[in-house]
């Protein structure tokens, strides 16, 4: 299991580094929607993984029909956001006060959506054609353009959501509702609307993650779930509800998985990450960036 530490050439190093960043971005894209919903509502949205898969399949189908990846991606985001709206308004908003039911309910939704996908399209993985095929040369290495695209969009999403939370009225309302929803109400904030909007944004981010990563990871009914567990851990270590935290920790986990391969089999790297997460839950449950006043 232990390998010798090989000397890396600069091109190998660049490849590992970029792999780590793009892997981190994929985790971040999945985690971002989860952390928004979790941070505001305190809901562990298990259905998130299924929404990621729906985003992947939506992109695949619409792109196949129209020939445009981008049309597919945005169409899928719109449809999944709409589904998020329906789920939140119909049942989920009723169980925010009861986290156990919320968790169980979204878990049921996850099972149903994933099984519906598998029922309709089968379990085998399918490929989405990238809008940016081919490779670029970088520090002597060749690297798939689509992975660079993921990195760029990941950064853009991080900046966009960060700006939304810090500089907009909605961001302020989200903060206020997450901190103390009763106070927000007496300041005229419609907290139910804030919850709904946040859930819809979270669903849209899930679809974005699924559609965007489809060309490099392929789409399958269980695609979301495999990232969900890592995403949960990122949320814990980054600090529940801390957007900045999940971004930084996603990147760190991405690098650990990329360079960890040099020393250990990938599975053992994964095991190490899980153990680290369990230790964090026990001894530093607010992670690095969690805000104590928000998530008691």
């Amino acid at each position: 299991m232990m390998y010798h530490l090989p000397l890396l050439t600069s091109s190998e190093f660049a490849t590992y580094l970029l792999n780590g960043i793009s892997q981190g971005m994929i985790i971040f894209l999945v985690a971002s929607g989860l952390t928004l919903i979790f941070g505001l509502i305190g809901l562990i949205n298990f259905a998130h993984g299924a929404l990621v898969a729906l985003g992947g399949y939506g992109t695949l189908l619409i792109a196949d029909a129209t020939g445009s990846f981008w049309l597919g991606l945005f169409g899928a985001i719109a449809l999944v956001a709409l589904l998020g709206l329906v789920l939140e308004r119909s049942v989920l908003h009723r169980v925010y006060e009861r986290p156990l039911l919320g968790f169980l309910g979204t878990f049921g939704m996850y099972v149903v959506i994933e099984e519906l996908i598998s029922f309709q399209f089968g379990d085998q993985a399918r490929q989405i054609a990238s809008p940016l095929p081919g490779y670029v040369s970088f520090m002597g290495a060749t690297y798939p353009k689509h992975r660079l695209l993921i990195i760029a969009i990941g950064f853009a999403v991080a900046l966009g959501i960060g700006a939304l939370l810090s500089y907009t009225r909605l961001g302020m309302e989200i903060h206020a509702t997450a901190t103390e929803s009763e106070t927000a109400e007496i300041l005229g904030v419609d907290s139910a609307r804030v919850y709904t909007l946040t859930f819809v944004i979270g669903a849209a981010l899930a679809a974005l993650a699924g559609g965007l990563t489809g060309p490099v990871t392929s789409v399958s009914p269980g695609m979301g779930m495999s990232y969900m567990i890592l995403a949960f851990l990122v949320i814990i270590v980054g600090g529940m509800g801390s957007f900045k935290g999940s971004f930084l920790v996603s990147l760190i986990v991405g690098q650990i998985t990329a360079f960890g391969w040099l020393f250990l089999q990938p599975t053992y790297v994964r095991l190490g990450v899980f153990v680290a997460a369990m230790v964090f839950i026990l001894y530093k449950p607010r992670g690095f960036f969690g805000k104590p006043e928000v998530f008691e």
Partner: peptide, 29 residues
């Protein structure tokens, strides 16, 4: 650990999720 430290419901769910997946992956590996 989790019971003595009285971590909340959410943390307990995630803690046991991590443990469950850990055992499964360990068995696989």
């Amino acid at each position: 650990g989790p019971i003595k430290r009285r971590i909340g419901l959410v943390y307990f769910v995630l803690f046991t999720l991590a443990f469950g997946v850990l055992v499964h992956d360990f068995t696989y590996a």
